[in-house]
């Protein structure tokens, strides 16, 4: 019972479509969680359920002490949400729009200018939102999600449309919020971006939660090989099995490189050989399985299990 967000056996059906099937997880305070899955996996649906925008067909949800399905919303003052396609009324200016949302959260008017500055919209604050570019709207969306020192942030594909500079400062903001103990749920298709930031990953496939854990845990479960890349001298290339020992999956790539896919339990052995006194190795790289690969693995293993 220590989660800021608790999802228990939640099912959501839209007519015949089962968008979410029996999903359970907790989001403890201060955790940054990546929610990944293919298009239509149920990520947005899960977030809408947490906000009470739709009601679960089965199961139970608690968010900051509220039951959103019952229309409770006291905790939402400390909750920020960025929808995947954020839109605003075109007639009002950026400043007016943000001021409206600040009032609803009972935030002082001065926080508006601060936030606009933070997302780099100060110069456009007095222009109508209708004239904003897609990225500028996304920035405004981010600004409204950050109103009121949120304890829980639900960000649905937050970095789509942001330029590299703001993408960077977005993750800085995320880092800062995490430092203050906020819970973050990020859905995204930019897996490489999430990899470095998220402490934990939840993988969804067709409404089912197929994996949930830290990146290391997932790597352990998936047992994907670690890629080891060795730069080898000419002499060494001629007789690889001699000094490397009986390794199955090795291959030569662009000239002087030897690439080995080492199973987790063989990883250390291979590295020892490669760094041995007499080994003809000039340089080496170790690449653990990326989130991309883990994701593909979990999707595939669930498909074959069906």
């Amino acid at each position: 019972m220590t989660g800021t967000v608790e999802i228990r056996n939640v099912v959501k059906r839209f007519g015949k479509i089962e968008a979410v099937r029996d999903v359970s997880f907790n989001l403890p305070e201060g955790e940054t969680v990546a929610l990944v899955g293919h298009n239509g996996a149920g990520k947005t649906t899960l977030m809408k359920l947490m906000l009470g925008l739709i009601r679960p067909t089965g199961g139970h949800i608690m968010v900051l002490g509220d039951d959103p399905a019952a229309g409770e919303f006291a905790g939402r003052r400390r909750l920020g949400y960025l929808p995947e396609n954020v839109s605003f009324n075109a007639a009002l200016t950026g400043h007016e729009t943000l001021a409206f949302y600040a009032r609803l959260k009972r935030e002082p008017a001065k926080s508006v200018a601060v936030l606009l500055e933070r997302v780099g919209l100060t110069h456009a604050a007095n222009r109508r939102v209708g004239t904003y570019s897609k990225g500028m709207r996304q920035r405004l969306g981010l600004a409204q999600a950050l109103l009121g020192e949120p304890r829980v942030l639900l960000l649905d594909e937050p970095t789509t449309g942001l330029d590299p500079a703001l993408r960077h400062s977005f993750y800085e903001i995320v880092e800062e919020l995490r430092g203050r103990g906020a819970t973050l749920l990020l859905s995204s298709h930019a897996l490489t971006e999430l990899e470095e930031r998220a402490g934990r990953v939840i993988i969804m496939n067709r409404g089912i939660k197929v994996a949930d854990g830290t990146l290391d845990e997932l790597r352990r479960i998936a047992r994907l090989p670690t890629r080891i890349r060795l730069k080898v001298t000419d002499a060494g290339l001629a007789n690889v099995p001699n000094w490397l020992g009986p390794v199955d999956g090795w291959r030569q790539v662009n000239g002087h490189m030897v690439e080995i896919d080492a199973a987790p339990e063989r990883k250390i052995e291979v590295l020892r050989r490669a760094t041995d006194e007499g080994a003809p190795v000039e340089d080496l790289d170790v690449v653990p399985p990326t989130l991309d690969e883990l994701y593909a693995h979990f999707l595939l293993s669930q498909e074959t299990a069906r």
Binding site: R77, V86, S87, N89, Q144
Partner: peptide, 15 residues
């Protein structure tokens, strides 16, 4: 339809 209701209803305000 414009999508503005989605955001508004995620705020601490009853329908």
């Amino acid at each position: 339809e414009r999508g503005t209701m989605l955001l508004l209803l995620s705020y601490p305000v009853a329908r």
